[in-house]
Design a protein around this nucleic acid. Structure first.
Lengths: 201, 201
DNA sequence: CGAGGTGTTGACGATGCTCAAGGGGAGTGG
DNA sequence: CCACTCCCCTTGAGCATCGTCAACACCTCG
């Protein structure tokens, strides 16, 4: 993903869709299907995207010749797995209000890590229906919980984007600890040009 | 894990525990922490276990010298990630009854794959409290759903073990499709000695 | 202008949780 | 050998969170 938002999802036998993952610019959504014979999840765009494609064979060849690259790619899939683990926790034990706050925190931190958020605000093309599918809630309940978050002056969220009005409060509400994202720069914004090159690729 | 059952878990800020994964004999529970600086989940034994340990450095060295082994290990972590994805779906969209049925199916299939289940029955040292922690339900609701599964003559479950009385029915109840486990032998029992060596290591 | 997706609100109902209590088995200490 | 404890399973009653159904306003796009 070069530009735009995408997500992976699976739909259950009863036709309910669960979003597993959001992909923001800089992500490699399909690495997880490498080496696996059967594809078990679906990739969808959320906003208009610019996508780059890489041949599986090219990755294989490069990673066999350069073990360091192989390790880096492997590490990337391990982080994806860590995010899944956190999502299991999120969907499993947290109440709706926290669940949504947690999701907002994750998106914000990840966008900050790639320099796409300034001042705790970012673009947010994810609809309430999609938040519902990501959190295992109904869209109307998402709507009500978002209103609660707004009423508590934690966020400002509309078509123009998401802004965390009270970052500490939002983290607390979402029981959010960015450790699971395994960001090398610990979730600090990647501005000042220091970490950008590392984050962009 | 050489013998016995174990699991990984995380506990949320409110003190609720979510089990992320069950580890059965033959599993490599800690591969996911390789290459990651911070450990973000906890490993616990469920029944008395025999455990083997491998130095991280040894794995690094071997995988740098033998790309095929590296790929196999990588593949193994990718399968772990696929299981997490399915758990997100399970916890996210399925009702309690299906959720539990799904979990039972997974354990049974994985044990069959390593030759630890005959005739759709296996050892099952996982308590109802632990099923609850794995499915994001309360233990009393697990108890009631299990009774429902028993009443529908799908399972027989007690201290002596788990038996699927109606395997097709149980799969249907749990909305279970073993594809996500990416078993090479498609979940068929590994008896007749054919696939055992592959499964044991 | 119509259509469709998104956000919003209300009313009602159900799935699943909490609290509480009790029984049984296994291990422990007297 | 018997109390005692602890864990696990079980059951009941009441309640809360969250889902479903429905309707409507708004916006964008064709």
């Amino acid at each position: 993903v070069l530009e735009g938002f995408a997500c992976s999802s699976k739909t259950s036998g009863e036709g309910k869709r669960q979003i597993l993952n959001f992909h923001v610019p800089g992500d490699f959504p399909d690495l997880l299907s490498l080496n696996l014979d059967v594809l078990d999840s679906t990739l969808t765009t959320i906003s208009p995207c610019r996508i780059g494609f890489v041949q599986h064979e090219a990755i294989q060849q490069i990673s066999e010749r350069h073990p360091k690259i192989a390790r880096a790619l492997w590490r990337s899939t391990l982080i994806d797995a860590a995010v899944f683990r956190e999502w299991v926790v999120n969907v499993g034990v947290r109440p709706a209000y926290s669940r949504i706050a947690h999701l907002l925190c994750e998106v914000l931190v990840r966008l900050r890590a790639v320099g796409l958020a300034q001042n705790f605000s970012c673009e947010f093309p994810i609809s309430q229906t999609e938040i519902a599918a990501a959190t295992g809630l109904s869209s109307v309940h998402v709507n009500r919980s978002l209103q609660e978050l707004r009423a508590n002056r934690l966020i400002k969220l509309d078509r123009t984007g998401l802004r965390a009005l009270d970052w500490e409060g939002l983290q607390a509400a979402g029981d959010f600890d960015p450790a699971y994202l395994h960001l090398r720069n610990r979730g600090e914004p990647a501005q000042y040009g220091r970490e950008q090159s590392q984050a962009r690729h």
